[in-house]
Amino acid sequence: MPTDADKRNELHLALLSVINTLVDGQKGLADIGDHLEDQTLKRYFLAESLKRARFRGDLEEVLHQNGFHDIKESGTTAGTIQRVWGDLKAKLGGGDHTLLATAEEGEDTTKEAYEDVLKHDLPLPIRQILAEQQAHILTSHDYVKSHRDAAVTK
């Protein structure tokens, strides 16, 4: 039977995983936004980057409230590789479609992180925060995907 300490540690690890994915998203969306030619998409990506920072802050606050004060967020190795790959594509002249495809891959990773964390036995207030964030992430993914698909026809 899991102890309270085990449950707290599981909560810490689960939220830290999402936080690191959000760090990746925050950096990746800003990087891609900087390279996009379409000004509307550029503004959207930069706003989404700020939204990921807010989501991250909300989850860090939950960890602080649960007694975890030494939060080390660095993103993930996979996220770093994906950003470098995206920068390389941009420098090679991949255009908005290529950048949007890279962004969609990142959004897929973020979707998976939320799906994984919501499989845990979480207190209701934390589950609600994550579910609200997940709903936004899904909407963002669909927006990026639809613009990626539209960029093919241009």
Rank of each mutant, 00 (worst) to 15 (best):
M1W: 02
M1F: 04
T3L: 12
A5T: 12
D6R: 14
K7V: 06
R8C: 00
R8L: 09
L13A: 11
N20S: 00
L22A: 01
L22M: 00
K27I: 14
K27E: 12
G28F: 01
G28S: 12
A30E: 12
D31Y: 04
I32E: 00
G33D: 13
K42P: 10
R43Y: 05
Y44V: 08
Y44M: 10
A47Y: 08
A47G: 13
S49G: 13
R52F: 05
R52L: 07
R52S: 13
A53C: 09
R54N: 11
R56D: 03
R56F: 01
D58K: 13
L59S: 07
E60S: 14
V62H: 07
V62F: 03
L63G: 00
N66C: 05
G67Q: 06
G67H: 02
G67S: 02
F68M: 10
H69A: 02
I71S: 00
I71N: 02
T76Q: 03
A78V: 15
G79F: 05
T80G: 10
T80C: 02
R83W: 00
W85M: 14
W85I: 11
W85G: 13
D87A: 03
L88Y: 09
K89Q: 08
K91E: 08
L92Q: 15
L92S: 04
G95V: 09
G95H: 11
G95T: 03
D96S: 11
T98E: 07
L99N: 11
A101Y: 06
T102P: 02
A103C: 07
E104N: 10
E104H: 12
E104T: 13
E105R: 09
E105H: 07
E107K: 15
T109F: 05
E112Q: 15
E115M: 15
D116Q: 11
V117I: 14
L122E: 09
L124E: 10
I126K: 12
R127A: 14
L130N: 15
L130T: 08
E132Q: 11
Q133V: 02
Q134M: 11
A135M: 10
H136W: 07
T139I: 01
S140P: 06
S140F: 08
Y143V: 01
Y143L: 06
V144D: 08
H147W: 11
H147G: 05
A150Q: 13
A150K: 09
